[in-house]
Structure formats: structure tokens, C-alpha cells
Amino acid sequence: MSVSTLPAAGVARPPAGRVRRFWDSSVGKKVVMAVTGIGGIAFVIAHMAGNLQMFTPTAPAQAMHTYAAGLRKLGPLLWIARGGLVAMVVLHVVAALQLTARNRAARPSAYGRKEHHTSTWGARSMRVGGVVLVGFIVFHILDMTLGVGHPQFVHLDPYNNLRLGFQRWWAVGLYVVAAGLLGLHLFHGAWASWRTLGLRRPSDRPLHRNIAIAIAVLVTLGFAAVPVAAALGVFAPDVVQEVAP
């Protein structure tokens, strides 16, 4: 992608402004990926916490409805948040694509033999996993936010939308796999983002990542819980008692 825009090795660039130079540099793009990634982690944790209200012991349909209606009540703030999320995803993906193109161009001929010593499955699946996750996000918004293709979608009744949506076995599988891929992505990303920003203390074991593992496990289990519980019939039929104003 951006490789063709790079001048030949050793050739000075024309003078450029600070933002341009930042975005053009490999460190700058990684900083953008780290900051947007941390924003994304904050979002998925909040999103997961919201989902878990499905397990409210009494009147879960009402709890989910009140939660959904409460988000809608934010009005313009909700649209600002949505715009911010889309902007973060776009920046994250564009930086990733451009960096990947540069990284590939930096090693055009492969080794006859190459051993991997420390790189984790998480690190090596970031690109493929990231592409799959973007595809999943698009499907998920169509499926559970807009109700496109959903068998019995009712606006502002997320409890039953989830309960009935997960009677499709393939959807259960898809959401669980996506939760696992997200966990794998965060196993590397939640650790690497802080390191990229230079926010980690020097350590004798810089590859250790207890907090990232905790985040990855929490997010995977938290997101997988709802589809799995729905498939197991944990969610009894329930109705929204009182439509929130």
C-alpha cells in the first residue's frame, strides 16, 4: 500500500509537518495502533459487561431493555461515541495494513529455513485474526444491532433478540469463535500496546504478560457466555414489562 510512497533508501523526504511525519513513521503508526487498541479494549470490556446483564436473575428482558434504551437516551453523545469507535477502527486497520505492506517489503525473499523462538500464536495471528474480526464486527452489527437477517428481530428488545438469535447453531459457533479470536488478539495486543507506548517498567522478563492474559481470558469467557448459555437454554422466555420512555 504505502510502500510506493516511500522514497528510495537514503533519499531525504521533502519537509513535512509534524502530524505528517508522525503518521509516516513506523513508530508513529504503531503508537496510533496502540492508542486505538487500548480504546478498543476499554470498549469491549464495557460491551461485555453490558451483555452480562442477560444473566439478571429477575426480569432480565426488562433489565436489557432499560440498558439499551438508556444508551439510546444519550442522543448526540451516542452518535459521538459511535463516530469515535468507527474512527478508531479505521485508524487501527489502515495503520495495520500500511505497516504490514512495509514489513513484507522489508523481507522480500524468505529464508530457506527459519525458526521461531519466542513469537506467540497471538503475535503471529494478529493480521489474519484482525481481518476476521473486522468481518465479524460488520456481520455482528448487521445481525444484532440492525436485525438484518435475524429471524425475529424486535427493536429495543435485546434479551429476546439474543435468546432467539442464538437458536441458530451456526451463530453460536460463529460468536464463540469470534470471542476466542478476540482473546487471542488481546493476548498480544493488550501486552504490546503498553510496551509500544513505553509505559511498561523495564523488566527481566519483558515477554511476560499477566494482565494481558487476564484481559484475554475475561473477554473470551465474557463474550462466549451469552451464546453458550442461550444454546443451553439458560435464558427462559421473558417479556419487556414496561417500555422505557
Partner: peptide, 20 residues
Amino acid sequence: VAQMDLEHFGGCTLFGECQE
């Protein structure tokens, strides 16, 4: 960093292979 990019090195994705 600017020179490193000009020389067509790739970027860091923290694989950790370098320190090994």
C-alpha cells in the same frame, strides 16, 4: 527512527525474536 524508516527496515510488532 526517521532514518530507520528511510532504509526500508520493517516496523516492530513485538514478536520478541530480536532479543532472543
